[in-house]
């Protein structure tokens, strides 16, 4: 899987790249006109999709590209959202400060957690992200004076210009597109390629002089930064935060999104986020047992489609292309 990935990076001018861009442009155009035809509820739902898509894509920088078992990414998302909520309700600072501070605080927490985690490997790395992430959750859950404890913070004030759901929609869409472009550029930059090398062969990378730990730490902090931005978007959409944002099952949900779309494809997590958010809404209309449905879905995915939907499509596309090439 990973070898395939590297190969495709070296030949950027193949048809699938153009096809990908065509899909992206068409998708953006549709999304731009969508609010004019959809009801408010669906506009809100799509804004949630954009927020979640950014969160999942930021995780995939560490998970898919870094190959690190990052089990508690939701923490940085929650920290970002809480930063906005606290600044807007407990201080008189302007909104601009809140949205600037949120990703910075999130990446600072990511720096602290990541600094410890990158010393460990494999499952131990994952367990430490879990332990330290749950520590942050417990602090948020208990620090009543600052975070309002398990009640969360509600009715967070936002500027007048962001009060309508349509303006929130366009803001989240714009932020998502810009962030995805930046994340894409990061994955294609020398740093991103080196990160892939540290994933595929850490020992060899180390021996040719790559500082594996610092590359992983940087990826971790970047992912935390974008998760913080997603946290800001979450506050714009929901206007409230609760400690459950930072509990580990939220992070597991993001992992499922990444897996569902495909860890090896850049747009995979976005697709996964879209499917899961919309599906949870649709299933919710019919039954209260959404988690049961999600569990069964995940089971099928893990057993039969572990490379994810986009991963599978790319694989079969590549296979067909190489067969044609040989004939």
């Amino acid at each position: 899987m990973s070898a395939n990935n590297l190969k495709s990076m070296k030949s950027p001018k193949k048809l699938s790249t153009y096809l990908g861009w065509a899909f992206a442009v068409a998708g953006v155009l549709i999304l731009l006109v969508a609010p004019t035809i959809l009801t408010q509820y669906y506009v809100y739902l799509l804004a949630t999709v954009f927020t979640t898509a950014l969160l999942a894509s930021s995780l995939n920088l560490v998970l898919g590209n870094g190959g690190l078992l990052h089990l508690h990414h939701g923490v940085f998302f929650g920290v970002g959202a809480y930063t906005v909520a606290i600044v807007m309700t407990k201080t008189s600072w302007p909104f601009a400060v809140a949205i600037l501070l949120a990703p910075m605080v999130a990446s600072l927490i990511a720096l602290v957690i990541g600094w410890f985690c990158v010393r460990l490997r494999g499952l131990y790395f994952g367990m430490l992200t879990l332990a330290l992430g749950q520590l942050v959750w417990a602090i948020v859950y208990r620090w009543n004076a600052l975070t309002n404890g398990d009640n969360g913070i509600h009715a967070i004030p936002v500027p007048e210009s962001l009060s309508s759901i349509n303006s929130v929609y366009y803001t989240t869409l714009l932020v998502l597109i810009i962030s995805l472009i930046i994340l894409y550029m990061i994955t294609k930059s020398p740093f991103g390629i080196t990160l892939l090398a540290t994933r595929d062969n850490p020992v060899r990378s180390e021996s040719i002089g790559i500082n594996v730990k610092s590359h992983r730490l940087i990826a971790f902090v970047i992912a935390g930064f974008f998760a913080g931005i997603a946290g800001v978007l979450f506050v714009l959409v929901e206007r409230s935060v609760a400690p459950s944002l930072l509990f580990w099952n939220k992070s597991a949900e993001i992992l499922i999104m990444c897996l569902m779309g495909g860890l090896t494809v850049f747009m995979g997590p976005t697709l996964g986020a879209g499917i899961l958010v919309l599906l949870s809404m649709i299933v919710g209309l019919y039954t209260e047992y959404w988690l049961l449905v999600l569990g069964l879905l995940l089971l099928i995915l893990v057993l039969f489609l572990p490379q994810g939907i986009l991963g599978y499509l790319m694989e079969s596309y590549d296979k067909r292309r190489s067969m044609r090439g040989e004939n």
Binding site: G126, L255, I256, G295, L296, L297, V302
Partner: peptide, 10 residues
């Protein structure tokens, strides 16, 4: 991990 997590959900 995710397979066992699906069992948690179910």
């Amino acid at each position: 991990m995710l397979l066992t997590y699906s069992l948690v959900l179910i």
